[in-house]
């Protein structure tokens, strides 16, 4: 089944996302982190199909998280999930090839469902990363 990683320093956002995702399909394996450093450490082992990443976090923000992924050549698909509607942030995020979309909180249920399903490709559940 599809593996999903949530990175947001606010527990409430993770709670909202977990609840929403489980509502789409209770079988999704969701791993939520309020500490981006721990999330990054676990990234390779979890090998998620999708990452929902917040931008505005203390210690390590979303941009630093993306930069580290680039450095380690990790190409997991990232959805930026932020309460910022800033056009500058949106433009900046487009520079990362592994960023699929820029989402503004809260994400509507329909959109979330669409995103979760669009990652089910022809090879079924095995979503391989190079």
């Amino acid at each position: 089944m599809k593996r999903i990683v949530l990175v947001d320093d606010m527990e409430i956002f993770n709670f909202i996302m977990v609840t929403s995702i489980k509502n789409v399909d209770p079988a999704f394996a969701v791993h939520d982190f309020t500490d981006p450093v721990m999330a990054f450490t676990a990234l390779e082992e979890l090998d998620p199909h999708v990452i929902f990443l917040d931008l505005n976090m203390p210690e390590m923000d979303g941009w630093a998280f993306l930069d580290r992924m680039q450095q380690k050549n990790l190409k997991h698909k990232v959805y930026i999930l932020t309460s910022s509607t800033s056009e500058l942030d949106r433009q900046r995020s487009s520079a990362y090839t592994n960023v699929a979309r820029f989402l503004v909180k809260p994400v509507e249920e329909d959109l979330l469902e669409e995103i979760l399903h669009e990652n089910e490709d022809a090879s079924g559940n095995s979503f391989q990363h190079i």
Partner: peptide, 25 residues
């Protein structure tokens, strides 16, 4: 004003997200 809008929008998006959950099921 842009900076202020962002500061306000963060907790507001949590409130909206939680309210959305109630309508989910």
């Amino acid at each position: 004003s842009v900076l202020n809008a962002h500061t306000v929008r963060e907790p507001l998006s949590r409130v909206l997200g939680l309210v959305n959950l109630l309508e989910l099921r």
